[in-house]
Amino acid sequence: MSKIKTLADLRNMRDEVRSKINLREKSESPEQMVQVRVAMATCGIASGAKEVMEFMMDAMEKRGIEAVVTQTGCMSYCFAEPTIEVTVPGKDPIVFGYVDVKKADEVIEKYIRNGELVEGIIPVNYQSIDE
C-alpha cells in the first residue's frame, strides 16, 4: 500500500500551487470569471446537487474555464431542483432547473462556451420596459 498523504505533503505542494495562481492572476481578474452557484438546501441535496457541484468544479478545471463554483440556499424552485445560477461576465445571471450531470455538461458547452441558450431556464429576472 502506498504511503498515506499527510499535511506535510500538502505543505510541499503549496508553493507550486501558489506560483500557478500568480501566473493565472496576471492574465485574469475575478470579474472576468464565470460564476456558478449551486442551490444546496434540503430540496437540492435530495435531488442530486452534490454530484452536480462536484461535476461543475471538476469539469471547469479540466476544460480550462476560469470559474468560481459556490453554493447558495434554496432559491424557492424546489420543484425544479437541482438548480444552478450561472453568471457569465457581462451578462445577467440565468437560473437553470432540473440540472443533472448531463445537463450541467450541456450548460458548460453550449451556454458558457458559446452563449447559446439551453432548455430548462427558469425565468427569474424580469425587466420592464421602463428600466
Binding site: K5, L7, D9, L10, M13, R14, V17, R18, I21
Partner: peptide, 25 residues
C-alpha cells in the same frame, strides 16, 4: 490545513483534490 497552506486558497483545484485523497486514505 489553512496554516499549512499559508494563504493558498483551500478551494484551489489541486488542494481540493489532494485533501479529498488525503481524507479518503
Amino acid at each position: 490545513i489553512k496554516e499549512q497552506l499559508d494563504g493558498v486558497p483551500i478551494n484551489e483545484h489541486e488542494v481540493r483534490r489532494f485533501l479529498r485523497n488525503m481524507l479518503a486514505e
